[in-house]
Amino acid sequence: MSTIQITSQVSTEDLLHGVESLPTEELEQFVARVLALCARRKANSLNEQESKLLQLINRPVPATLQSHYDLLAQKQRANTLSADEYAELLQVIEQIEKFDAERVQHLVTLAQLRQVSLDKLMQDLGIRQPDYV
């Protein structure tokens, strides 16, 4: 794990500069931990079920799965993807889609708990719909 040297008084700009130097996989893990921290802080004013749902909603696609997808997608764009790799890419896409579907289900459950529409919940949480929708 990388370390970031910080002084006792650190501006958010300096902290961001330090985080910027992390390798991608560690950056993703750091972001996941920051999101979990935010969810825990919000949990003080939320019930346990809402808190758990927010943690699940903010959970990123596992870094190993994302990096595997990125590699295969890059090969596909370069037209160097073998037939076996194409089949593998389809399996990875299916796993990511399943992960995303579970996230949407958690959003729907949270919207129902809060008695708001899914659109309103996503707006409240700052979640944008994908461009392809």
Rank of each mutant, 00 (worst) to 15 (best):
H17R: 15
E28Q: 09
V92L: 07
A87H: 14
H17V: 05
N79R: 11
P60Y: 08
Q129E: 06
L107M: 06
S21H: 12
D119P: 01
P60I: 08
D70V: 07
L22S: 09
I93W: 04
E88Q: 07
V92P: 00
M122H: 08
V34I: 13
P23V: 06
Y69G: 00
Q49T: 08
K120L: 12
T109K: 12
L125V: 09
R33E: 13
L54G: 01
E28S: 10
Q74D: 11
K75S: 03
F99L: 05
E26L: 05
Q55D: 06
A32N: 04
Q49C: 06
N58D: 08
L121A: 09
Q91G: 11
L121P: 04
H106N: 11
R114N: 13
R77E: 09
E94A: 10
T64A: 11
R59W: 03
R114E: 12
M122P: 00
S21W: 04
H106S: 14
S21I: 09
A39D: 05
R40A: 14
M122C: 08
D100P: 02
E50L: 06
V92M: 03
T12A: 15
I93F: 00
E85R: 00
L121D: 05
A39M: 10
V108G: 05
D70Q: 07
A78L: 15
D84K: 15
E97Y: 01
R114G: 02
L107S: 02
L35H: 05
L54Y: 01
V34E: 08
L15Q: 07
Q115I: 05
A101W: 02
Y86Q: 14
A111T: 05
H17Q: 06
S11C: 07
A111C: 10
V34K: 04
E20G: 02
Y69E: 04
R114W: 03
L27W: 03
A63G: 02
V34M: 09
L113F: 13
S67V: 08
A83P: 04
A32V: 01
L113G: 06
R128T: 10
A111L: 04
L90T: 14
A111V: 03
R41G: 12
Y69S: 00
K75V: 02
V31R: 12
E97D: 09
R128V: 04
I127A: 01
E94S: 07
L90Y: 11
L27E: 01
V31E: 14
P62C: 15
A63K: 04
F99I: 04
H106L: 05
V92T: 11
Q49W: 02
C38F: 15
L71N: 14
M122Y: 06
K120H: 11
L15W: 11
T80W: 01
Y69Q: 14
A83R: 13
Q66G: 03
A63I: 13
N44Q: 14
L90R: 08
R33D: 15
T109Q: 09
D119I: 10
V92E: 02
L22V: 00
R114T: 01
L53N: 04
H17N: 03
L110D: 05
